[in-house]
């Protein structure tokens, strides 16, 4: 069970006209993790998610959820998957009761009505409220309750906390932790809030201009992406050559390098062989790492994360 892959894509590709939205993505998400799916705006996150769910047809490649081809998900498989859309689009003309009744028909035999009622009460909502009269945050809360109530085996959420206040965002994260503690559950969620990703995720997928740049354990990404500053007595060399160099910025006497997968001993060696007077490994948080990792001057470099 442990290494079982619940979401897998191979060469998954989507063009819009002649533009690549998603470019040959290969992903393997193991069961039991929370995977943060991060990328800058227009990196291809939503397109990738829609392809995985079979809501869009790929130009090329394949995608499988729970072992079933995304283009031909059977009702039995769909029933095991929860999906929260970007912006929490729900039918405005329904009230909360009607929406629950509608939603539960897709999950026969597994809808936890008590759990749904408790969540709605916890959020201070009334079941008679019409969706179109709810605020953004309240709609998000309803959508969270709808997503969790069927106890999905695989939960996919497209930027679920976009535009929500800190308290409601925390409720979403809490809900994710609650789900993941049940046996065999897996969550993939996209987000721009790296602090949230660090909080709840134990895997990270970085997508950049439609290309998967990293797919690994979060901790591995945290450890592997480093910023090293070499200081030189005279002028800094124009460049240094080292495996794992993502990009390098030069000022007169300094080189600031972003390195991937180079351990501290190697860094010391590198500093010595480059003739640096001293060097410094800068501390970075996940957001700094993400920004440096997807910076334009490092684009196109791909690392074999399974070997780092």
């Amino acid at each position: 069970m442990i290494d079982e892959v619940v979401l897998e894509t191979r060469g998954l590709t989507k063009y819009y006209g002649s533009v690549f939205a998603v470019d040959h993505i290969d992903l393997k998400i193991p069961r039991g993790c929370i995977c943060g799916f991060v990328g800058r705006n227009a990196a291809g996150k939503t397109t990738a998610i829609k392809l995985m769910l079979g809501l869009l047809n790929p130009t090329a490649g394949t995608s499988k959820l729970l072992g079933c081809d995304s283009a031909a998900l059977t009702p039995a498989i769909r029933q095991r998957i929860g999906y929260v859309t970007e912006g929490h689009r729900l039918f405005g003309w329904m009230n909360i009761v009607e929406l629950e009744r509608f939603q539960r028909t897709f999950f026969p035999g597994q809808w936890d009505g008590k759990f749904f009622a408790e969540m709605i009460e916890y959020f201070g909502l009334s079941k008679k409220q019409k969706i179109k009269h709810l605020s953004n945050g309240q709609r998000a809360q309803v959508s969270l309750a709808l997503a969790l109530s069927p106890n999905p085996e695989l939960l996919i959420m497209d930027d679920p906390t976009l535009g929500l206040d800190a308290a409601i965002r925390r409720q979403f994260l809490s809900g994710m932790i609650e789900i993941i503690m049940r046996e065999g559950r897996t969550i993939l969620f996209s987000s721009h809030i790296l602090g949230d990703v660090e909080r709840v995720a134990d895997r990270i997928v970085v997508i950049d201009k439609g290309v998967i740049r990293a797919d690994c354990k979060l901790e591995q990404f945290r450890t592997a992406v480093k910023k090293v500053i070499l200081a030189f007595e005279d002028s800094a060399p124009l460049q240094v050559d080292i495996d794992g160099l993502l990009h390098c910025r030069r000022s007169e006497k300094e080189l600031a390098m972003i390195l991937v997968g180079i351990n501290d001993d190697k860094i010391a060696e590198l500093a010595k062989s480059a003739g640096a007077e001293k060097y410094h490994i800068a501390n970075m948080n996940l957001e700094d790492q993400f920004i440096e990792y997807t910076a334009p001057d490092g684009r196109g470099k791909l690392f074999k994360w399974e070997e780092i």
């Binding site: 929370i34 809490s174 932790i177 993941i180 134990d202």
Partner: peptide
């Protein structure tokens, strides 16, 4: 582990680690 993870709203694997 699970209790602390729920309380702090962080991944249980992080607490276990």
């Amino acid at each position: 582990v699970r209790k602390l993870a729920a309380e702090l709203v962080i991944n249980p694997n992080t607490v276990a680690r």
